[in-house]
């Protein structure tokens, strides 16, 4: 479903070229829950940004559902980003002036749908993740766990092909983090494809597959199940 072919990403640091990703090939099936581990600077967020259309590779190809994300115009990329992927982040990235329900509906509002149509959809998702009572609260009135749930609801409202999570538990205590992971796991059990970047092995263990990046290259691919050694 998601295909990376010989993908490299290069940045300029003064006169020096720095590789964030070096010739990475990877294919991710529909319904997979992939955890990506690696130290900071290993290229894991870059990989997520390429799959999410937030960035373009310097070389190589990226496909979502057989549609290329490389070599297309910014406006085409924006459309794919809006409709095919849902993002959640370590610091939730909610808009502070909007209520929970407005934050959840934002991707559709940006896409031009009227609030009267968006509102019932946002309500349904907030209800599904147990936050119906918080619909009219602003982010500052919510706990960290609640903010991340709102962010998950916002990511889901477009019914994306893949949910991309960048350190979703990084700013939460162990217990709250576990609740977020249980929510992601239940979404996965309902068929949602998920790619999660984390440096926390306890979080990574929720995946059905765990890959490790080292210095911009794939260093380990642990398929789950099968014998231990």
């Amino acid at each position: 479903m998601i295909e990376l072919k010989n993908v490299s990403k290069q940045y300029r640091q003064g006169a020096r070229a720095v590789y964030a990703l070096k010739d990475v090939s990877l294919s991710i099936q529909k319904g997979e829950f992939l955890s990506i581990m690696g130290a900071s600077g290993s290229g894991k967020s870059t990989l997520l940004n390429l799959v999410g259309g937030l960035d373009q590779p310097s070389a190589g190809e990226v496909f979502i559902n057989a549609k290329p994300l490389h070599g297309i115009s910014d406006s085409e990329l924006t459309l794919i980003r809006r409709r095919q992927v849902g993002f959640i982040f370590q610091f939730f990235n909610l808009l502070p002036l909007l209520t929970a329900i407005e934050n959840v509906g934002l991707p559709l509002l940006v896409d031009g749908l009227p609030f009267t149509r968006v509102k019932p959809m946002a309500e349904a998702i907030l209800h599904k993740i147990g936050l119906a009572a918080r619909a009219e609260h602003r982010p500052e009135q919510l706990s960290g766990g609640e903010m991340q749930r709102v962010a998950i609801a916002r990511a889901l409202i477009t019914n994306p092909a893949v949910l991309l999570a960048d350190e979703p538990t990084g700013n939460l205590d162990s217990h709250t983090g576990e609740e977020i992971l249980l929510l992601l796991k239940s979404l996965h059990e309902q068929g949602q494809t998920i790619i999660m970047v984390t440096h926390d092995s306890k979080a990574a263990a929720y995946g059905t597959r765990i890959i490790t990046l080292k210095d911009g290259a794939l260093s380990q691919d642990v398929a789950i199940g099968g014998p231990l050694a």
Binding site: M37, L182, K185, S201, K202, A204, A205, Y206, G207, I210, T212, S219, Q220, V222, I224, L228, A229
Partner: peptide, 23 residues
């Protein structure tokens, strides 16, 4: 070290599966 880490990750995944079943 690499092999050992992969093994621990697999074990952690199994423990997580058990926890999910328990829940």
């Amino acid at each position: 070290i690499e092999k050992q880490k992969a093994l621990y990750l697999k074990q952690m995944n199994r423990l997580t599966q058990r926890k999910l079943a328990l829940k």
